[in-house]
Design a protein around this nucleic acid. Structure first.
Lengths: 240, 240
DNA sequence: GTTTGCGTTAACAATTTGATAATACACTGA
DNA sequence: TCAGTGTATTATCAAATTGTTAACGCAAAC
């Protein structure tokens, strides 16, 4: 299995991750205005011209936020939302409707479909950006934790970029550190290889399958204890 | 007229923990309307008539969500928001502005103050309720991500990819796990062989009939108990 | 300019998993 | 009872997946 994407990536510190936003609208002008403003704010933007394109682009890019027009040729926004929300991969993705329809029924239906917000056109680009910022702010608030994570006898200090295990300092290379930090962030949870690639390597890099294995091996070697369990055909998990 | 509202239902279920909402507005009418509608939705509502009351009530009741009017006698909404956000106790509290001021500047400033949404009066009570539901839905989503199914003494944890039966951990291979998870997802339901093939193996793969049998057998063997019943000529079902 | 270490890949070994065939078993109705 | 049909069991082999080691390119450090 190989990820085919252009090479453009630095280390992803868990803090400053480039947020990806997918915008789906059939009006090119609106698409362009929103794209411009969000990019100016530092977001990475992907666009789609209709519902089907949106679904495809979502699957391919795994965006952090999806902005959906309601009225689009082919599948409309609400249908797209429904289709995406069913899939586990998009269960937690931020979804916002952006529609010219401002009637109560549609808005309520949109929100009950599982969207996080419903915005009505016309909307000031600046306000839209503010709303988007607010959504991400909320998302990060709930996720962010301390810089120091402790799991049993393992201490992971993001700030100092160091790891202690049973009182001994252990030096890990960056990828090794990120990988271990990811696995240890949810002890017991099985991380799929894809999840690992997305979190540690980012979605834009090409790496082979063995790469993960090799790093896992190095970590196991350095920790001198097999706290990482392989779940064949699924992924890896961290356990004390 | 009856709608199918999957996410709506979810919101109500997760509300088994009664959510507290504080509303601050100097117009008694608005206060009453909003209070009525939110209570009808199952929320516990506290009200305040101005900024100072709002702060006091917030400290006293520690609400889950605070709805703030911007223009209030004494401290205005934005000031209240600022004061609260500084305190650790309200760092993560949901805050929404509800204002008659719809100018861009104020709205942006409101959002940048750390609010989660900015609503403009007049607003339909139903839409307000939908927005509130959406906010809580997002909040809960980030908290409980666990995908654990429990059927009697059998525990299926998708996230950890583990199975416990009568307190013992049982290791299943991927297909075995998926198969058991499928059957246990609807105890008592008979799954046709075709259903099983589609769900576990996917529609693209073609495998013989015996394949299912073999996997069923392995599961029975590992669980050491026949909780899977054969329905001859039809399929299999899970029963404890 | 050389050295060093990281990240990656290639190549092969080791292991696990999954599918099939062959056979045995259970149940049904004539 | 005896075919006839459908399932259980087992062994076996192919395929998929992962583990391990070595080597290479590259960039930063010396």
């Amino acid at each position: 299995m190989i990820h085919v994407k252009p090479y453009f990536c630095e280390a992803k510190n868990s803090m400053s991750i480039l947020k990806k936003i997918l915008i789906a609208d059939d009006e090119p002008d609106i698409l362009e205005i929103i794209q411009f403003n969000l990019q100016a704010e530092g977001y990475q933007v992907i666009t789609a011209k209709n519902g089907d394109e949106a679904i495809e682009a979502a699957k391919k890019n795994q965006p952090d936020l999806i902005i959906l027009d309601i009225m689009m040729p082919g599948k409309n926004g609400i249908e797209v939302c429904n289709i995406l929300r069913i899939q586990p991969a998009f269960k937690d993705t931020l979804i916002v409707f952006l529609s010219a329809l401002s009637d109560e029924q549609t808005e309520i239906r949109g929100l009950e479909t599982g969207a996080d917000d419903y915005l009505t056109k016309p909307i000031s680009p600046k306000i839209l950006v503010s709303k988007v910022n607010a959504l991400f702010r909320r998302l990060n608030k709930d996720k962010d934790e301390t810089e120091i994570v402790t799991v049993g006898e393992l201490v992971i200090d993001r700030e100092k970029y160091m790891i202690k295990f049973k009182g001994n300092d252990i030096v890990l290379a960056r990828k090794e550190f990120e990988l271990l930090a990811l696995l240890a962030s949810k002890p017991g949870k099985v991380f799929l290889r894809n999840e690992i690639l997305n979190q540690v390597w980012g979605t834009e890099v090409i790496v082979g399958d063995r790469t993960i294995d090799v790093h896992i091996r190095k970590i196991r070697q350095k920790l001198n204890l097999d706290c990482i369990t392989t779940v064949k055909g699924v992924g890896y998990k961290f356990e004390l």
